[in-house]
Deep mutational scan, measured.
Amino acid sequence: MIFPGATVRVTNVDDTYYRFEGLVQRVSDGKAAVLFENGNWDKLVTFRLSELEAVK
């Protein structure tokens, strides 16, 4: 189960963010908004829950 605050990895091989890890900001309607941070940039991207896996 994916909840806000969880760290997730993108599993969709066709996505630009494949294998990126980010922090879930919100979850609704089968989608999750994931925040990616890297140095001087932040990006908030929405994914279907089926495209994400929780990082242990």
Rank of each mutant, 00 (worst) to 15 (best):
M1D: 14
M1A: 11
M1F: 10
M1E: 12
I2N: 01
I2R: 01
I2K: 02
I2H: 02
I2F: 07
F3V: 13
F3Q: 10
F3M: 10
F3C: 12
F3L: 09
F3W: 09
F3Y: 12
P4W: 05
P4I: 09
P4K: 08
P4M: 06
P4R: 07
G5S: 03
G5P: 01
G5A: 02
A6D: 13
T7D: 02
T7S: 07
T7I: 13
T7H: 10
V8E: 00
V8I: 05
R9D: 01
R9G: 02
R9I: 09
R9H: 04
R9W: 07
R9T: 06
V10N: 01
V10G: 01
V10Y: 00
N12G: 05
N12W: 04
N12R: 09
N12L: 08
N12P: 04
N12I: 06
V13Q: 11
V13T: 09
V13A: 11
V13S: 10
V13Y: 07
D14F: 12
D14R: 11
D14G: 09
D15P: 02
D15C: 13
D15V: 06
D15W: 04
T16D: 11
T16S: 11
T16R: 12
T16A: 14
T16G: 08
Y17R: 05
Y17K: 03
Y17Q: 03
Y18T: 02
Y18C: 03
Y18H: 05
Y18R: 02
Y18V: 02
Y18G: 04
Y18K: 02
Y18A: 04
R19G: 15
R19D: 12
R19C: 13
R19W: 09
R19M: 15
F20H: 12
F20Y: 11
E21Q: 10
E21W: 07
E21A: 06
G22A: 03
G22S: 01
G22W: 03
G22D: 01
L23E: 08
L23A: 06
V24T: 02
Q25R: 08
Q25W: 11
R26N: 13
R26S: 15
V27G: 00
V27K: 02
V27C: 06
S28Y: 14
S28D: 10
S28R: 10
D29N: 11
D29I: 05
D29L: 07
D29G: 10
D29C: 10
G30V: 03
G30A: 04
G30Y: 05
G30K: 04
G30D: 08
K31W: 14
A32T: 01
A32L: 02
A32N: 00
A32G: 02
A32W: 02
A33Q: 14
A33D: 15
V34K: 01
V34M: 01
L35Q: 07
L35S: 06
L35V: 06
L35K: 08
L35M: 08
F36N: 00
F36E: 00
F36K: 00
F36V: 04
F36I: 08
E37Q: 14
E37H: 14
E37C: 15
E37W: 11
N38G: 11
N38W: 13
N38I: 14
N38Y: 14
G39M: 10
G39E: 09
G39K: 08
G39A: 10
N40Y: 10
N40T: 12
W41H: 10
W41F: 12
W41G: 13
W41T: 11
D42V: 15
D42L: 15
D42H: 15
D42Q: 15
K43V: 14
K43L: 14
K43F: 13
K43T: 12
K43A: 13
L44N: 04
L44V: 13
L44Q: 06
V45I: 09
V45R: 09
V45M: 07
V45C: 09
V45N: 03
T46S: 09
T46C: 14
T46N: 09
T46M: 12
F47P: 03
F47Q: 03
R48V: 11
R48M: 14
R48H: 14
R48W: 15
R48L: 15
R48T: 11
L49W: 05
L49S: 04
L49Q: 04
L49I: 11
L49K: 03
L49V: 10
L49G: 02
S50F: 08
S50D: 14
S50C: 11
S50L: 06
E51C: 05
E51Q: 05
E51N: 05
E51I: 05
L52M: 02
L52I: 08
L52R: 00
L52T: 00
E53Y: 05
E53R: 06
E53L: 06
E53A: 07
E53T: 08
E53N: 04
A54R: 08
A54G: 07
A54N: 09
V55A: 05
V55M: 06
V55E: 03
K56E: 13
K56I: 13
K56M: 13
K56C: 13
